[in-house]
Design a protein around this nucleic acid. Sequence first.
DNA 1: CGACTTTGACCTGCGC
DNA 2: GCGCAGGTCAAAGTCG
Length: 294
Amino acid sequence: MDELACLMDWDLEAIVRGCSNESQGANTIMEEPCLNFSHFCSQQNEILWNFPEFSETTKVLDELEHLYKPFYPVLHPLSTLTNSSHNPKEPQEFKVLKASEKVITLQDHSLVPAVSKSKKRNKNKVMKQVVADGICDSWAWRKYGQKPIKGSPYPRSYYKCSTSKVCLAKKQVERNHLNPQLFLVTYTSEHSHPHPTRRNSLAGSTRKNNNSIVEPTSSTFDLKSTSSSSSSLVILSPKTPFDEVEMVKSVEQSKGLKKEEDFVELLDEAELGYSWFSNTSFEELIGDLKSNLS
DNA sequence: CGACTTTGACCTGCGC
DNA sequence: GCGCAGGTCAAAGTCG
């Protein structure tokens, strides 16, 4: 298998796992036995003693922190778009939920697709601005339509809950044409049933990666014009409110950002597995480690 | 074979 | 009333 295929496999697996993950405590990607340091969070002090050289480690942590800064908080997958003002001429307000669940409010005209406002009757809607991996959640969705949206090169995809035929829950996903790394996910109506089991949710998402939905189809759109080649790394946590996604690093080489492999390499360099992030946020861990090491 | 995606047609709400 | 645009339906195709 060539390198690209390996990378794609890895990425798809990460996303599928992300999709399949749900509120099962610590049953996340970190449960894989192949990952070293899986007990890091519960044995943090012990692990610290295993680092060969503290100076080397802090250097790596600095690099990691520097690497991650650009992705907070704007690209955090849990940012929630609230339509607090009903005046469409006013900028919409984003509430960005950090992993620590502190709410940061910001206003950014550039993040809101102009086409997101619907002419239709105002239903009970929840809008979220997420990065690609944030599109996936642990509910099972069935796509029932896709429409090109005026003013946006990207189509909007329509989903219904596939767990129950009587469930009225719906979801719309569209890529933000002003910032293709971001997606606007709109949830309509509540689920009329309990949360599906891990198995059920897997069944609803394994056939194809849900991220495919917002890509323009080849017959009507030019795929080359999208940034579909960007990949992402998902690190899961059981504590966050929606998808248990605690951190997402979006990688876009064309913008000169560090490659995903570089990040993994840094983790390897620090002898850290992904489980390192299982219980607290990245920023908190970096801070804790730095204070412990100093 | 069942579950899901794709996609053209149709329906509906809204502005003019 | 008409036309536009968003939203939904459903048949055909795809995949595991």
